[in-house]
């Protein structure tokens, strides 16, 4: 990978899109990449639309603007499709990854004629099954790794195991569920 891969996250305050972008940055960092992970801070409040960004590269990254022509867009909350222009600037040879129970071709109708790849992942079901609560960011993280191919999946799983062990040192009981959610998400992305 010689060029910079740019990813834009759309979510709602409290769903962990910012955390997911930082986790992705972490995972890519651990595979030796140069990374940026940064949210666009607005008047943050629970439920309001938020945007976060990643740049991942083999070379040093110097650009410090927001991302306007992303390679990948991740939509953590499907209701945002009604209010946010999520495919704005998205490259046609890139992909959009949406958290929804719907099929890719069904959701494509909402994407204002976007011609690139549309992938879906039912992060809600995976999260409820594996974590007993709705934390969409873990499955979404795995889905973006799967679709973008920015790192080796096995390496990603191994790295996340270590990073969860560190992150959840005080509540190790949640590690297994999170790992399960990641692994299931890698298998269940549709539209590849």
């Amino acid at each position: 990978m010689s060029k910079v891969v740019e990813i834009r996250w759309h979510g709602r305050g409290g769903q962990g899109a910012k955390t997911a972008s930082l986790l992705l940055a972490d995972a890519a960092f651990n595979t030796g990449k140069y990374i940026q992970g940064f949210p666009e801070y607005g008047p943050e409040r629970m439920g309001a639309p938020i945007t976060a960004y990643n740049r991942i590269s083999d070379e040093k990254i110097t650009v410090h603007s927001n991302i306007y022509e992303p390679d990948y867009v991740v939509v953590v909350d499907e209701t945002l499709l009604n209010s946010v222009d999520v495919t704005a600037g998205l490259k046609e040879d890139g992909a959009i990854i949406i958290n929804t129970a719907k099929e890719p071709e069904e959701i494509r109708k909402k994407l204002k004629g976007y011609k690139g790849k549309v992938c879906t992942i039912d992060a809600r079901t995976i999260s409820i099954d594996c974590l007993k609560r709705y934390f969409p960011n873990t499955p979404m993280l795995a889905a973006v790794v799967k679709v973008s191919g920015i790192m080796d999946e096995e390496e990603f799983i191994k790295d996340m195991e270590e990073s969860f062990a560190h992150k959840f040192a005080s509540k190790p009981q949640v590690i297994e569920g999170n790992m399960q959610a990641l692994k299931r998400a890698l298998m269940e992305v549709k539209g590849l």
Binding site: D26, F29, Y34, I35, G37, F38, Y41, H64
Partner: peptide, 12 residues
């Protein structure tokens, strides 16, 4: 250093 752009962005 720049607020948010540098202060809140994670980089190498």
């Amino acid at each position: 250093y720049d607020g948010f752009i540098t202060s809140h962005a994670v980089e190498n």
